[in-house]
Computed example of a mutant assay.
Amino acid sequence: MRIAFFVNSIELEEPYFTTTALALAALDRGHKICYLTPGDFVLRPDDSLMVRALTLPGSKYKKAETFHAVLQSKDAAIETIDARDIDVLFLRSDPSLDADDRPWAAHVGAIFGRLAAERGVIVLNDPGGLAMAQNKLYFQGFPAAVRPTTLISKSIEEIRAFIGEHQQGVILKPLQGSGGKNVFKIASQDDANLNQIFEAVSGEGYLIAQAYLSEAKAGDIRLFLMNGRPLSRDGTYAAFRRVPASGEVRSNMHAAGTAAAVEITPDILAVAEMVRPKLIEDGMFLVGLDIVGDKILEINVFTPGGLPDIAALCGVDFAVDVIAALETKVAIRKANGNNISNRALATL
């Protein structure tokens, strides 16, 4: 089969990205791959949807660094492909990375993903579901029991009052954003930096204020869900703890966070079970839950990362399981045609 990976840009891709691990697993299983970016779709006058795809030689690569070097080199060629010749379009772009400098690009994956799905391409995660998840307000649609106490506002007075109600402090972050950008911990409503932080973050739009969870000092747990259920193999879960650097609120890996092995308990699985129905309803094939205690801080449905870290910690390459799941979906589509909607097929 042919898998197209939709990313923000080729230049931003890195050897340690989960997308790289998925591409390597696909090549290792004998599949064709290509990369697309927001400017690569073409809708022609005859209503055919074409993509200008960056294709790589169909060889196997022993190291992610070797694959990445070829991806960035002249050995990778641009080929114009009819979307109908793509089996799976894997949407792996982060809209927030384009929101400021390229706002036109932020929603391209969901927009053209819908067109591709109409032409029989399996698009994951479902573009209709992703369109509803363009910012963190999507998280408010999940059961209240799994969410920290949260205020969403652009009013400094509302935020100050909310902080005053939480003695352990509050986390402030923008409604639109990812990767730990502009995330701050406010200890009290009298914090001398509150006004400055508010001005900096509110310039990006609405703010989220979340009650600080003391368990977050040890970091959060990134747990992958596939087809709505925790991804696991032989009793090992696709999960790891993201440990923040000393003095750092954020546990994001690019913010100097480190990966550590973690035990997945029945309580954590219960949290995942509570969000499963909505993830299935929205066609979310591959998702990353960021869990602290019995709460979920965020649900990453666009570019959940960490599979290479898990492989290094646990010795299990879950990228293989993801590609195997895609093979199953392609077989189901071929057997049933378009009788199964893209959203339903996404989590079968």
Results as ranks from 00 to 15, higher is better:
Leu91Lys: 03
Val88Arg: 12
Thr80Gly: 00
Ile86Cys: 04
Ile86Met: 01
Ala99Arg: 09
Ile78Gly: 03
Asp94Ala: 15
Ala76Lys: 07
Leu97Cys: 03
Arg84Gly: 13
Val88Trp: 11
Asp75Phe: 01
Ala77Tyr: 06
Asp75Gln: 08
Ile78Cys: 12
Lys74Glu: 12
Ile81His: 07
Glu79Asp: 01
Asp101Pro: 03
Gln72Trp: 02
Arg92Ser: 10
Arg102Met: 06
Asp82Ile: 11
Ala77Ile: 08
Gln72Glu: 04
Ala77Phe: 12
Ser93Val: 03
Ile81Cys: 02
Pro95Asp: 01
Lys74Arg: 08
Arg102Leu: 14
Ala69Val: 04
Ala99Gly: 00
Leu71Pro: 01
Leu89Asp: 01
Asp101Met: 09
Ile81Trp: 04
Ser93Glu: 03
Ala76Ser: 11
Ser96Leu: 06
Ile86Tyr: 05
Glu79Lys: 10
Ala76Thr: 10
Arg84His: 08
Ala77Met: 09
Thr80Ser: 08
Pro95His: 01
Asp100Glu: 11
Phe90Gln: 13
Glu79Met: 09
Val70His: 07
Ile86Trp: 15
Asp100Arg: 10
Ala77Pro: 00
Ser96Cys: 02
Ala76Glu: 02
Arg102Ala: 06
Val70Ala: 12
Ala77Ser: 02
Thr80Arg: 12
Leu97Ala: 05
Leu91Met: 09
Phe90Trp: 15
Leu91Ser: 03
Arg102Glu: 08
Asp101Thr: 05
Leu71Val: 15
Phe90His: 12
Ala76Pro: 13
Arg102Thr: 05
Glu79Ser: 13
His68Trp: 12
Ile81Thr: 10
Asp98Phe: 09
Leu91Ala: 03
Pro95Gly: 08
Ser73Asp: 07
Ala99Asp: 11
Ala77His: 12
Leu89Ala: 02
Asp85Thr: 05
Ala76Gln: 11
Gln72Pro: 01
Leu89Gly: 04
Arg102Gly: 05
Asp94Trp: 08
Ser93Met: 02
Pro95Ser: 03
Asp82Thr: 05
Leu71Phe: 04
Ser73Val: 00
Val88Gly: 00
Ile86Asp: 00
Asp87Val: 08
Asp100Leu: 11
Phe90Cys: 10
Ser73Glu: 11
Ala83Gly: 13
Thr80Asn: 10
